[in-house]
């Protein structure tokens, strides 16, 4: 079971601000889902290899060949927060 503190912690890890009231709501909803996920515990899997990918592909590469970059104005076209060719954000900490 996850606690209010857990919700606050994962909210911080995920950078999603959660209000006091939302914390309780999330806790309840998340716990009901986690409880459902808990059914996997009944399945013994000690000797099972995890499947990260169904496609068993190895060694996919590209050659070291230069391709065209985007023009600076295109790079910055999707934000209004820019300055001297850079993205501008508030101070970090």
């Amino acid at each position: 079971m996850i606690t209010k503190e857990d919700v606050e912690h994962i909210g911080w890890l995920a950078r999603i601000e959660i209000s006091e009231q939302e914390t309780v709501e999330y806790m309840e909803k998340l716990n009901s889902v986690l409880e459902y996920f808990g059914q996997l515990d009944e399945l013994p899997t000690e000797d099972v290899v995890p499947t990260y990918h169904v496609a068993e592909i190895y060694n996919v590469f590209r050659e070291d060949i230069v391709e065209e970059c985007l023009p600076q104005e295109t790079v910055l076209a999707n934000t209004e927060y820019k300055q001297d060719g850079t993205f501008r954000v508030p101070k970090i900490g």
């Binding site: 996850i2 857990d6 919700v7 994962i10 909210g11 911080w12 890890l13 995920a14 950078r15 999603i16 601000e17 959660i18 999330y26 909803k29 998340l30 889902v33 986690l34 954000v89 508030p90 101070k91 970090i92 900490g93």
Partner: peptide
Amino acid sequence: ENWHAMVSKTRAEGFGTEVKRRILLGTY
């Protein structure tokens, strides 16, 4: 007031409830 706060508020406002639930569960 700072970048981390901006991000947390942006994501709180910008994502809908179900998306936030799934992000939180996935993070967990």
